[in-house]
């Protein structure tokens, strides 16, 4: 077993512009499960070099204790993509996030480049994970093939803003236009048994709207959501954290399952409702999300 592998909850991933030193150094203190140090869209063209240098230093010197650290690099076909990979891959953050991936050929090419850099630095190929962003109609069409291309890909994510632009949507804030894409991307992730992040919610003042959207995407099956302001973290974490009532119910189901298993009973009832293997599986997931060890219930 690889003891270097770290596991994180992935309810919230906070975007931090790579050229903002104050935000970079404070990124881990707000309670997000992960931080996403951004070299791409949050950084102006004339700041790309500065951001790359700053993020490289931060990865060396700042402890993001308890947070999963992902760096979003620029697309490989931009003038910055290759330099980003050369600077970031040797530092092996927990993951790198690749934007606007559209085809299998593209992901093949990028992973090859990443692994060449890792070979140059005598680094393993299985430590740093790869996250893929689907942000175009073509990417949505190819999402399963992309997501299943490599075992290194352990999460995919929908980039709602770019996708809406690619789809030429005029009004995108109600999420109707990208609803199909959301569902398609979730299904691909589930088929590959990997995590899936929802896009950002841009109206930072609208806390109720954020909560509604988080509840909706949780029902769709998303693992968590990208966050653009620390004030959004608490709401999304709350939505993705089981309530006390949910935990009690899940614990009851799991206990009943253990009891019945000994007697060879596979299907039984809890509080008048049928429980079978998939229900137990969902209950186990609730306990996992609540950090409750099954052995201790």
């Amino acid at each position: 077993m690889d003891t270097n592998k770290k596991t994180f909850k992935r309810r919230t991933m906070l975007y931090i512009p790579g050229n903002n030193p104050a935000m970079l150094q404070q990124g881990s203190v707000y309670g997000a499960d992960g931080v996403l140090l951004d070299l791409e869209d949050a950084v102006a063209l004339n700041q790309k070099d500065a951001a790359r240098i700053l993020v490289s230093h931060m990865l060396r010197y700042i402890s993001y204790e308890g947070c999963e650290v992902t760096v979003r690099v620029n697309h490989i076909d931009t003038p910055f993509g290759m330099d980003d990979l050369k600077a970031i891959v040797p530092l092996q953050p927990d993951a790198i996030r690749l934007p606007k991936v559209e085809t299998v050929d593209e992901i093949r090419r990028i992973i090859q480049m990443v692994e060449e850099i890792e070979d140059e630095h005598e680094l393993p190929h299985d430590k740093m994970k790869i996250h893929v962003m689907i942000e175009t109609a073509l990417g949505v069409q190819n999402v399963y093939d992309i997501a299943s291309f490599s075992a290194r890909i352990d999460a995919i994510s929908i980039g709602g803003q770019d996708l809406a632009a690619d789809m030429q949507l005029v009004k995108a804030n109600d999420g109707i236009g990208i609803d199909y894409a959301r569902k398609q991307i979730v299904m691909a992730a589930k088929a590959c048994k990997i995590d899936v992040f929802d896009t950002v919610y841009v109206d930072v003042e609208n806390e109720e709207g954020l909560r509604e959207e988080a509840e909706y995407i949780k029902k769709l099956g998303f693992t968590g959501k990208a966050i653009i302001n620390p004030r959004q973290i608490e709401i999304v974490n709350e939505v993705f954290t089981p309530t006390e009532q949910e935990i009690r119910k899940a614990a009851k189901i799991v206990k009943a399952f253990e009891r019945n298993k000994k007697e060879g009973i596979g299907v039984f009832a809890v509080d008048g409702k049928m429980v079978d293997a998939p229900v137990v599986q969902r209950a186990l997931r609730v306990l996992e999300m609540a950090d409750i060890d099954v052995a201790e219930i």
Binding site: V29, Y30, G31, P230, R231
Partner: peptide, 11 residues
């Protein structure tokens, strides 16, 4: 306050 740092400390 809406300052994220103050809110985090308060929480």
């Amino acid at each position: 306050t809406k300052a994220p740092m103050d809110l985090q400390i308060a929480r």
